[in-house]
């Protein structure tokens, strides 16, 4: 996964309904680049049967464990 270019950001923002000018797109590209790079080892590696609610399950198991002690 690579960080998006200013041109790509300009297009994404426009499609999203909040167009930004090229200077802003350039600034956003620099600003969010580290987040893209930091998440790159995870992106595209997650197993098929994994959904966001697993977080609640893991958290809830901890709560049940606490309640039982």
């Amino acid at each position: 996964m690579t960080k998006p270019t200013a041109k790509q950001i300009w297009a994404i923002a426009a499609v999203g309904g909040v167009p930004v000018n090229p200077d802003v797109a350039e600034r956003i590209a620099n600003s969010i680049g580290p987040a893209f790079e930091g998440f790159a080892p995870v992106a595209g590696t997650l197993p098929f049967d994994l959904e966001p609610a697993v977080f609640i399950l893991v958290q809830g198991a901890e709560n049940l464990k606490k309640a039982a002690t």
């Binding site: 950001i9 923002a13 930004v20 600003s31 994994l50 399950l57």
Partner: peptide, 21 residues
């Protein structure tokens, strides 16, 4: 706030899906 406009939906959902593991 504008930073959030540039993050694709799939990437956001990957970040949410990874939260449990």
């Amino acid at each position: 706030l504008q930073n959030g406009l540039a993050i694709p939906g799939v990437l956001y959902l990957e970040a949410m899906r990874w939260r449990g593991p």
